[in-house]
Amino acid sequence: MSETSTLPATSGFDWHGFDAYLFDIDGTLLNSRDWVHYNAFHTALQHVYQCDARIDNVPVHGNTDIGILRAAAALCGVGGERFEHGLVEAQKLMAGEVEKHADQLRPELCPSIRELLDRLHVEGKLMGVCTGNLQRIGWTKLKAAGIRDRFAVGGFSDHHEFRADIFRHAMEQATNRLGSNAKACFIGDTPNDIHAAQKLGMPVVAVATGIYPIEQLQALHPTHCVPCCKELL
């Protein structure tokens, strides 16, 4: 399919017809009931960029860790070469902070996620994540939630600031394992998840377990749209 093609929503959607399932993390697999990731942003902004801006003042839902850092740093006038020069250090510092405080993580799995992952595992499906989190942060969250072992591949924001590139990278990993004819489906909770999958011409299931109501997600014409993953069991 072309880079700009989209797939219309259909009542005949076959959830079980895919070889690989690629999930967003925050708002899709789980919601964090803690301040660990949030605080890690501010530690990096302060120590690397001498910036006191708060990420409360920038879009975070459906964004990427690099995108959030860039937007917050810009509020302090930090951009261009100065931002890029400190980015690797900022990423390492953020990931280290989350790992150091992993015992404080309080992930709450979204409804029926554990049951859904167990069923896909029994069916022999490949599962992966495609998230705006940095890799070490994403895996640490999933480990804290007790579901890390269900995922074989992952697309993260360490080297990809934009969501479509993250999704593409996750898809490439899936096809490397399963072959070029493998069929994959993305699952996410934000408009940006829908847009990223549509840009790649890939099917996407939108779930209203984040901050966006189902009506807003459905209006963007995902392949399928459900209130929560319980509907996929």
Rank of each mutant, 00 (worst) to 15 (best):
134 L>P: 02
98 V>R: 05
97 E>H: 15
230 K>Q: 15
215 E>R: 09
162 F>R: 14
193 D>N: 14
72 A>L: 11
148 R>M: 02
34 D>C: 06
227 P>F: 04
148 R>G: 07
182 A>F: 07
103 D>F: 13
126 L>Q: 08
199 K>A: 12
43 T>I: 15
133 N>P: 04
84 E>I: 12
125 K>H: 06
115 E>C: 00
201 G>P: 02
69 L>Y: 11
66 I>T: 10
163 R>E: 01
21 Y>C: 08
72 A>T: 11
69 L>Q: 10
133 N>E: 03
122 V>F: 03
122 V>M: 06
174 A>F: 03
154 G>E: 01
159 H>W: 11
206 A>E: 10
86 G>K: 03
56 D>I: 08
223 T>H: 07
77 G>I: 07
50 Q>I: 00
33 R>K: 14
87 L>Q: 10
169 H>F: 15
129 V>R: 04
117 L>H: 04
108 E>H: 13
70 R>H: 12
215 E>N: 12
199 K>F: 10
223 T>S: 15
10 T>H: 05
88 V>R: 11
203 P>L: 04
14 D>I: 01
215 E>Y: 00
109 L>Q: 11
204 V>G: 13
109 L>C: 12
95 A>H: 01
121 H>Y: 06
129 V>A: 02
52 D>Y: 09
70 R>M: 08
5 S>R: 04
87 L>R: 13
62 G>M: 09
66 I>C: 03
41 F>Q: 12
177 R>T: 11
50 Q>Y: 03
113 I>M: 14
228 C>D: 15
134 L>A: 01
233 L>Y: 04
233 L>E: 12
140 T>P: 09
30 L>D: 05
140 T>G: 02
157 S>T: 06
206 A>S: 13
20 A>Y: 08
148 R>V: 06
99 E>P: 01
96 G>Y: 04
123 E>Y: 01
180 S>T: 14
193 D>C: 14
217 L>E: 07
155 G>A: 08
145 A>D: 06
180 S>R: 15
41 F>E: 13
175 T>V: 15
15 W>Y: 13
19 D>E: 13
15 W>I: 14
214 I>G: 00
208 A>E: 02
218 Q>P: 00
6 T>V: 09
64 T>F: 03
217 L>P: 05
139 W>A: 00
226 V>I: 10
136 R>T: 03
210 G>Q: 07
93 L>Y: 05
117 L>W: 07
141 K>I: 03
7 L>W: 01
171 M>Y: 13
232 L>Y: 09
141 K>P: 04
193 D>M: 14
223 T>N: 02
